[in-house]
Design a protein around this nucleic acid. Structure first.
Length: 117
DNA sequence: GCAATGACTGGAG
DNA sequence: CCTCCAGCCATTG
């Protein structure tokens, strides 16, 4: 299986992750844990990362570059086409990135709930 | 089905 | 803020 057909339960979780990530406004970022909690799986932040690792082949593409770890670190930059793509995309959206870390992380943090903007 | 892996996290030093 | 350690859980071999 290289495209779909994951375990029934995970499909639901993965789809939710993609849906939330696609809601992230441009120039904003969020963390894996925030998404996991929003989906009711605060202990499965790693699964969010796993989902984003597979999002590359999806249509429409998921703005995974807007998802970072709790420290604002671009933990998944190495999973993109090029290691510099993630930081580059964020910079193009107006997000300051230094040493693979999002600056003003708390200020740019986007909450999946009704705190969109 | 077991063992290893990982885009994580929080606590402790 | 940085590093190390232990817990988490679906995916993969």
């Amino acid at each position: 299986m290289t495209e779909k057909q994951y375990s029934i339960r995970s499909v639901d979780f993965f789809e939710k992750v993609y849906d939330v990530v696609r809601m992230i406004p441009k120039g904003r970022v969020t963390s894996y844990r925030a998404i996991a909690i929003h989906l009711g799986a605060s202990k499965s932040a790693r699964l969010v990362g796993a989902a984003l690792h597979l999002c590359s082949h999806l249509i429409p593409p998921v703005p995974a570059h807007r998802v970072v770890n709790s420290q604002g670190l671009l933990s998944g930059k190495h999973s993109f086409a090029t290691p510099s793509l993630m930081a580059d995309l964020l910079k193009k959206e107006g997000v300051e990135v230094v040493d693979d870390k999002v600056q003003h992380f708390q200020k740019l943090f986007w909450h999946p709930n009704g705190a969109e903007d």
